Computed example of a mutant assay.
Amino acid sequence: MPEPLAPGTLTGKTAVVTGSSRGIGADTVRSLARAGADVVINYRNKAPRAQKLANEVREQGVEALVVGADLTDAASLESMFTSVKETFGTIDILVLNASGGMESGMAEDYALTLNRDAQLATLDAAAPLLGAGSRVVFVTSHQAHFIRTTPTMPEYEPVALSKRAGEDALRERIPALTEKGIEFVVVSGDMIEGTITATLLERTNPGALSARREDAGKLYNVAEFAAEIAQAAVEAIPENNERIVGDVSGFTA
């Protein structure tokens, strides 16, 4: 696990983390706030949990804005970033963490809508608040990042393909972002212990988590992976704009 960001590293900076009322997003907010960043906590339908997180990080002496928004809805996105602008003015770090596609009762194209279209829409909505020196971080999984060359579990394949489509679409924006002095990095991790996705995969494919853990030698937990995301928000951009977290010996580039 990387060293936590030193207190004060991000003082005066504002970070937006989508899908951050729980799990990896919430721990990413904690890591960034401990480093001094003011934070925007985005949730879809868990307001009390988001408010509880905001109260927790405010004890670090930072500001926290809680904004409910459905990233697949244009009006909801516009309202979210209007609130961000009114509160903070600009954004220094945008973490595109929200994802899904394994939920029950959703439309057939929901995974692609959320994991590709909504990621682009979120970036576009945030763009007027991003300036030279700001950074966009896209969070993904090895199962999605390497899906073009390494098959994954059938239960996860539609999500993996949609997240890779989102990554590809965002990468097409790199030249335009670079022209504005905005940096972009992908953070890819293996199956993460304790996440909703891992739980759902284990439910539909019993033994999947333990098998992957055995193959990899170690799986990161939520806090460990969130610390990597926080580091990705400040460290130099790696080769090919990607930060690969954990073992990849079972994946073909």
Rank of each mutant, 00 (worst) to 15 (best):
P2K: 13
E3T: 15
L5R: 02
A6H: 10
P7Q: 14
G12Q: 14
G19Y: 06
R22G: 03
G23W: 07
D27V: 01
T28E: 12
V29E: 03
R30D: 04
A35N: 07
A37H: 06
D38M: 06
K46G: 02
A54N: 06
G61N: 04
V62Q: 01
E63M: 04
A64H: 08
D73L: 08
A74W: 02
S83Q: 14
V84Y: 01
K85A: 10
K85H: 09
F88I: 10
V95D: 04
V95M: 11
N97V: 05
N97D: 04
A98W: 03
G100E: 05
M102F: 15
E103N: 15
E108D: 14
E108L: 14
Y110W: 15
T113V: 09
T113P: 09
R116N: 13
A118R: 12
Q119H: 15
Q119T: 09
L120C: 09
L120A: 14
T122R: 03
T122S: 15
P128I: 09
L129A: 07
V136M: 07
S141L: 06
Q143G: 11
Q143H: 11
A144W: 03
P151V: 08
P151I: 05
E155D: 08
Y156I: 08
Y156H: 12
V159A: 04
S162E: 09
G166E: 02
A169M: 07
L170E: 00
P175H: 11
P175G: 11
L177R: 02
E179V: 07
K180F: 01
F184K: 05
F184Q: 07
D190L: 14
D190H: 10
E193W: 02
I196G: 12
L200W: 11
R203Y: 09
L209C: 00
A211I: 04
R212D: 11
E214M: 11
K218V: 03
N221A: 12
F225G: 03
E228K: 07
A230F: 03
A230G: 13
Q231S: 07
Q231R: 15
V234M: 00
A236P: 10
E239H: 09
N241W: 03
N241V: 02
I244K: 12
D247K: 08
G250M: 11
A253Q: 07
A253F: 13
